[in-house]
Design a binder for these strands. Structure first.
Length: 494
RNA sequence: GGCAUCGUGGCCGAGUGGCUAGGCAGAGCUCUGCAAAAGCUCGUACAGCGGUUCGAAUCCGCUCGAUGCCUCCA
């Protein structure tokens, strides 16, 4: 029997503002769409947090036995830097600054994006469509919306008629806005706007002569509006209605609001059943954003080359740090927080590795099956990874107590403990055991250290503490820590 | 200005009416030749002010503060 039949997953739906029992449209199958990046520069750590959050959801849904189709787009068509009627798109700007083709910009940063997410051990999505690969579909959707009378053409550009749409629908229902408030709060636009109303948004923009990324359409040589690609690609691969749509909190308005409007205008159906929004990662208390320069690159974490960092941290430590906060909470990045996470992460891994060495008893002093269900309870509660991690640490405490000869565990509980820890740490949380990953290259090292441990033990037996301490202290200087336990000495490498 | 989210012990972060996570740091003890590691014990926090309630960090109101969106952003 599939696990999802035993576990009841609740997801916080941004649309209702409540945690709702998750029921997919088609039993056993989940369609999930997440807004991907615009590839005009390196992904920063804040971007990564969002994608790690949805990777966690993807992993858990799969773990529960769902067949998941995870679609995440790449925005590679240039979109304007602001809502002005003229201006340069960010990809073209980057191309001009670096003297390369716009598609070279796209290629370079798509590769960077993939490389970084792979280091964080994110699973690749099932489909990763690009905006430029779906121009035809986007034009077709614009035609549909025009036919419904909810879009209009002006000077080769097509705009979505928000006011007209709002007569029969509620534009603003996701972000809790009323159109009257939007009008009251509208900022002054430049006078030469083609839009009927400032709230209208572009479905198609006529390209200026210098605009490189352009495609023919019934209205003009131009390019699609930013919001359109997600509507088109999500419906193409997941259907007019699908289960989960995710993205960063900053996309809630206007991007996701526009997606809903486009979907409802084109098909008459409300496209998304569960809206999920991942919260921001902040640096120095401020949102990380490419546009303000308040950001830190993942590569700088891995190398330690950033003024905010005292040392380098592995991708798994950074991932663990982020998973220690719930995805809907703002998380503030700091060196101290990362240092604390690193210690906790290492303790978790050390404990996991020691499970094989635990002696079995005839009874257990810890209910493994009950503990396991609490792990599920945590994840079932809107993917609450920090509570899952806290629960994993209960097991760590127990494992260590067995090592000390305090706790007792039966053979079958031992098996269950090991397989559960394995599932949650690696499969669900997607953490990587650095020591295991380096096993092959470190086989010689561990042999060498084992030899030194043996020599030290002999020296200690002979009360030659000068020699034994020298071995211990010099190894520590090299980053190898010896740990004396009841069952002998083990070691860990930084 | 509008809308939204949030303010938890030294730090990071869970918890949404009573049983008061977890990690890191700190203190004591056990173990140890001494340490480290590990184990045990300790800390009793919820911005402020009112209100609801037998009982509130948790619900309501107000005040203060922070952040996000309202123009591109995960």
């Amino acid at each position: 029997m599939a696990l999802y039949k035993e576990q009841s997953l609740k997801i916080y739906n941004s649309m209702s503002g409540e945690k709702e029992l998750f029921t997919p449209i088609s039993e056993g199958n989940v369609g999930m769409y997440v807004c991907g990046p615009t590839v005009y520069s390196n992904v920063h750590l804040g971007n990564c947090r969002t994608f790690i959050s949805f990777d966690l959801a993807f992993r858990y849904l799969k773990h529960l036995g769902y067949k998941v189709r995870y679609v995440r787009n790449i925005t590679d068509a240039g979109h304007l830097e602001n809502d002005a009627e003229t201006g340069e798109d960010r990809i073209a700007k980057k191309a001009r600054l670096e003297h390369i083709e716009p598609m070279e910009v796209v290629q370079r940063y798509t590769i960077d994006f993939h490389t970084i997410l792979q280091k964080f051990n994110n699973l690749p999505p099932s489909i990763e469509p690009t905006a430029t690969g779906h121009i035809v579909e986007q034009i077709e959707t614009i035609k549909k919306i025009i036919e419904k009378g909810l879009a209009y053409e002006v000077n080769g550009s097509v705009y979505f008629d928000v006011f007209k749409f709002n007569k029969d629908h509620h534009y603003g229902k996701l972000s809790g806005r009323a159109i009257e408030d939007m009008i009251a709060n509208t900022r002054e636009l430049n006078a030469q706007s083609d839009k009927k109303n400032p709230q209208d948004f572009a479905l198609w923009k006529k390209a200026e002569p210098q605009h490189i990324m352009r495609w023919p359409s019934p209205w003009s040589d131009g390019f699609p509006g930013w919001h359109l690609e997600c509507t088109v690609m999500s419906s193409k691969y997941l259907g007019d209605e699908f289960d989960i749509h995710g993205g960063g909190m900053d996309l809630k308005f206007p991007h996701h609001e526009c997606e809903i409007a486009q979907g409802e205008a084109a098909t008459g159906k409300n496209p998304v059943h569960y809206w999920m929004h991942a919260n921001m990662l902040t640096l120095n208390g401020k949102k990380m954003a490419k546009s303000t320069g308040n950001n830190i690159l993942p590569e700088e974490i891995f190398t330690g080359k950033n003024d905010n960092l005292s040392k380098a941290f592995s991708p798994s430590v950074a991932r663990f740090f982020m998973l220690q906060a719930q995805y809907r909470s703002i998380l503030d990045f700091s060196n101290d927080a990362l240092l604390a996470s690193e210690k906790g992460f290492n303790r978790l891994m050390d404990s996991y590795r020691s499970i094989d060495q635990l002696p079995a008893s005839s009874t257990s002093s810890f209910s493994v099956s009950e503990w396991k269900q609490r792990c599920y309870d945590a994840m079932n509660d809107d993917f609450n990874s920090p509570v899952l991690i806290a629960t994993l640490f209960e097991a760590v405490k127990f494992i260590n107590s067995v090592k000390e000869g305090e706790g007792k565990i039966t053979h079958s509980d031992l098996e269950l403990l090991k397989s559960s820890m394995q599932s949650f740490i690696f499969e669900v949380l997607g953490l990587l055991d650095v020591a295991v990953a380096n096993e092959n290259s470190s086989a010689k090292l561990s042999g060498t250290v084992e030899l030194l441990i043996k020599l030290r033990a002999e020296a200690r037996n002979n009360k030659d503490f000068a020699t034994s301490d020298q071995i211990r202290d010099q190894l520590l200087e090299l980053g190898i820590q010896l740990k004396d336990g009841k069952e002998g000495t083990t070691f860990s490498v930084d």
